[in-house]
Structures are given as C-alpha cells and as structure tokens.
Amino acid sequence: MSAQPAGAGDWHAAWSAALDSLEMDVTAAEELLAGDHRDRELRLTDAWSPPENLGPLPLDLRPRADAILARQLATAQAIAMAMIGNRRQAAMLARVESGNDGGQRPVYVNCAA
C-alpha cells in the first residue's frame, strides 16, 4: 500500500465537505417541492460558492458528485414546472375573481320582451 502525499486527507475531506453542502441544499429544495415546508419554518440559506483552492475532484468522489448534479438538474426542472403551474393557477384565479374570461362583456342587457 502506498503512502498518501502530505495533505491528501485534507484535500479529500475538503471535497467531501463541499459535496455535503451541495447535497444539503438540493435536499432542502426537494423538500420544498414535496411540500414538507408547510409543517416547519424554512431557514434562509446563503448562496453556495465553491471553496477556494480545492484542486481537482478526487476520483472516488466522482459518482457522488454526479449523483448530486443529477438531483440538482431534476430539482431545477421540477421548480420550473411548479412555477409554470403557479402562473397558470394565478391566471385562472384572476379570471374567476374578476369574472372576465378574456372575451367581450355585454354593455347592457335588453330586458324588453
């Protein structure tokens, strides 16, 4: 078994911590979409920025990083679809509340018989 170069454990731990942070963020977004947020307060999160001087991703962490990326992409698509659904629902509600379906409304009603 070969000895690891000095700092190799720190490098691996730094990447693991960075992936932990990304995974927590995507989990929070997935919970938000699932409706789990209705029962509890949501904490505000800071925008993620990669730690400085990480170097290349260790090869053994690649599958985890790929899985997190796939979850991020799926969550982003689900958020976009939820936004579209919300816009449609708001537009429908606006029409119901105003009674305006977009067509012309009569100016008067002829009651003469």
Rank of each mutant, 00 (worst) to 15 (best):
T75F: 03
V107E: 15
A90F: 11
A94R: 14
I79H: 04
V96R: 04
V107N: 07
P56S: 11
L93A: 14
A28C: 01
A94F: 05
D39M: 06
L57H: 03
A80E: 15
V96L: 15
A70N: 08
M24V: 09
A67N: 11
R71W: 04
A112R: 15
L61K: 02
Q77I: 00
T75C: 14
D25A: 15
R95Y: 02
A67T: 04
L33R: 03
V109A: 10
M83L: 11
T75A: 15
C111T: 14
R95M: 13
L54H: 06
M92E: 15
A74I: 06
P56R: 09
P63A: 03
D46P: 05
A14T: 02
T27N: 06
A17E: 09
R105E: 12
Q89F: 08
P51V: 06
M92R: 13
I84H: 12
A91Q: 11
A82G: 05
W11C: 00
L42E: 12
G9R: 14
A65S: 10
M81L: 12
R105Y: 06
R88M: 09
V96M: 07
V26Q: 03
P56A: 13
A90S: 12
L93G: 01
N110D: 15
A18G: 02
L54R: 04
P58W: 05
M81D: 14
A18H: 06
P63D: 01
L61R: 01
L42A: 11
E41S: 07
S21M: 05
M24Q: 15
A112F: 13
A78E: 07
L69N: 15
A82Q: 08
P106R: 04
D10N: 08
A78P: 05
Q77T: 07
A17V: 03
S2W: 04
D39F: 13
A65C: 04
A3C: 05
G102I: 09
L42F: 01
A34G: 09
